[in-house]
Design a protein around this nucleic acid. Sequence first.
RNA 1: GGCCCCUUGGCGGAACCGGUAGACGCAGCGGACUUAAAAUCCGCUGGCCCGAUCGGGCCGUCCGGGUUCGACUCCCGGAGGGGCCA
Length: 858
Amino acid sequence: MSRYPFRASEQKWQRIWEERRCFEARTDPSRPKYYVLEMFPYPSGRIHMGHVRNYTLGDVVARVKRRQGFNVLHPMGWDAFGLPAENAAIQKGVHPAEWTWANIREMREQIKAMGCSLDWRREFATCDPAYYKHEQAMFLDMMERGLVYRKESWVNWDPVDQTVLANEQVIDGRGWRSGAPVERRKLSQWFFRITAYAEELLEAIDRLERWPEKVRLMQKNWIGRSEGARVRFPIDGREEAIEVFTTRPDTLFGASFLALAPDHPLAQKLAEENPDLAAFIAECLRTGMSEEVIEKAEKKGFDTGLRGRHPLAPWGAPDGLPIYVANFVLMDYGTGAIFGCPAHDQRDLEFARRYGLPVRPVVLPPDADPARFSIGEEAYLGDGRLVNSAFLDGLGVEEAKRKVIAWLEEHGLGKREITYRLRDWGVSRQRYWGCPIPVVHCEHCGIVPVPREQLPVTLPQDVDFSKPGNPLERHPTFRHVDCPACGRPARRETDTFDTFVESSWYFARFCSPWAENAPFLREDVDYWLPVDQYIGGVEHAVLHLLYSRFFTRAMSACGYLDLDEPFAGLFTQGMITHRTFRDAEGRWLTPEEVRRDESGRWVAVADGRPVEVGRVEKMSKSRMNVVDPTSIMEAYGADTARLFMLSDSPPDRDLEWTDAGIDGAWRYLNRLWRLVDERLGLLPPPGTPLPEPHTPAERELKRWTHRTIARVRDELERFHFNKAVALLREFSNHIEGFRPEGESGRALLREALEALVGMLEPMVPHLAEELWERLGHRRILAETPWPEADEAWTVAETVRIAVQVNGRRRAELELPRGCSEEEVRRRALEEPRIRRFLEGREPRRVIVVPDRIVNVVL
RNA sequence: GGCCCCUUGGCGGAACCGGUAGACGCAGCGGACUUAAAAUCCGCUGGCCCGAUCGGGCCGUCCGGGUUCGACUCCCGGAGGGGCCA
């Protein structure tokens, strides 16, 4: 029996595609464009199954669009800066550049083996100075436009590794690598002013119609707009006042204290004269200040002894409010100070109970009795009528907010304000393997940008990783420069960019990767951008996707582009999961270390002892449940792996890796191979004019062909690739059962096989090309237009109409499509089974839905 | 704690606007081919029940209610799982 020779076939077609330059894209404004992009990989070593799924999904889109007549841009590159390269340098003594480029070589071959329709001429790595020099130039442009600034801020500092850690790198208060307790330090850091676009980034989310709702919601939450008021509380006996931001100005009359963040300037100032307060503040800062930690920690405060005057005195708190420094107030949010209204805020309530402060309700729930309502252990957060609130009494919460803000504004004690949860984007990293920040610090001139003609500031190659900390700091020459402004000795910035900076504009670079004097050419980006379809994991739903949206606006502000949104369509794929296994001692085992014995139990290969089959989890090295894509592609071929990725599970859901699933895909490829192979002798030559179908079987086959073309087109359009696969399998099952009689039958069989093979190409391109060639075609499939459905043949001649009695199916009618209601009704009531239910009675009602259903109501 | 999403056979999943629930596949069972195995091909496959067979009945989309001629689909309440923000 003939088998699909995948090894020879995959090599052959990959060579032909390359020779014919099928997938090279050229800017051509006379043609409609389509830009498909998968999130570019970090070159960590080898590709994993998530990459295979990602690039398969993207390739299906690229191949379909190309054959539908679009000028398709489908590039690939490397997000090449980042920590793992430095860890390798520390652990294995390899230079980060060497490690990275070796990984790129390895992964490039692995990706090429998948047979994706990529324009490899456009490949680049972000660690290449030819890439990052443009990033440095853009940074300077943004600095000139005030989109970049430097300020002191609190960071997570790992005292052992001597570096800043991102929040995600702090696990239970300890550095993820060193295990040392993380300290909070104040450092001067570079920031991108993303908050300048907070409102615009938020408001534009509603127009991202081809983005998943989930991602849009996550970005909205992340930006976190809140409307409220800024209120001034003068301090008794002092010049300064405390500025408070609140989203509940309606509850001002319920205030019973004021609280400052531990790092609030006033708190710091008071601590200078008060050692107890200083100790308290130090304690707060040590335990970390993430919102999560604060929520769980006990609410603690330190009474400063000062008193704040209520802005609405004499009605509210005529005796003033105690001022605390409290561990649950964040300097980063609002003004770093709050007024506490325990009755209507849970944190404030916990604090008030602990320190015996008054709890005065000012919002009465709708059905509560004013005389008896009081707050227990739960603050009341809902709507209601204002009470105990002087001129606000009787108003609803929203009305009260408006009225009190108007009053505050009128009396100069406060104003309406909108704040955002979004913080400016800190991009300084005390790291070697990143893009150098192109500035110089001069004692006399301050911060001086590196002159454009001196860009790029390249990373020195000779660095020493034997000691902790940033090797750029210790480098003999890198940091010592002459000030570009005054010429006196100065210090080069040794921080490098967060790697999210590189990934914030790479999609634009792919449009003109060859441009030397500019990051990209206007004619190219104006044509190709925005990306029409972006595909990647949902884990980037906020950071990368939000930074890119900001960066695109910032680039436009600097005149590089005329564009707001980089990604018109976004698709987020699910994870690849796999069973986990543990042996009797609880050690994780890899899938290769287990097998099924004769009775079907899972046992260890090594000793035959039973293993515990654990949960299905995301593939990860720590769980030992990873399957290497290359070993699968070597054993079954790239097309098998691709087909498996597309079958069964909808692409946005998690996909469970199973050996049975791979076998199933492999078997189907061979079935297709035989389906064509065994019928080659029957078929007329390609291009034979299509005769009208003669027999019912021929008419049915024709209908299957065109209905499948139409339905597959729709499912592909909606990213329902699993359904497209199912439709093609159904179609091939039907072709298998067709026995051609005579010339017309054989011609129609060719039509069906060609449609099938043609539609398989985006999913299993090597097999499809091979079969297409065997069907006698000289023009390769990748260059052949996508099959078109003849609408006249996309509907069946007859329809099956279910006949229900009281909503339960009792019979079925086979009628010509488009029968009149009266006809259907008559035929339904004539059915013997229906007459039995009627027992001679007249039905009370008969509902007829044309071509679908009849419901007889007794 | 708030907001959002999900829950369909042994399993992954189909079912478009409320109109024949379970497409397609995996696993399983029975059969053919074979000395045998693999591969391949054919048939069956939600549960319970009646019936010699063709056939027929009842139940069934997490649970409870509702709307409707008709509900996996819409509404209310609950349970379980997941995500985001706290």
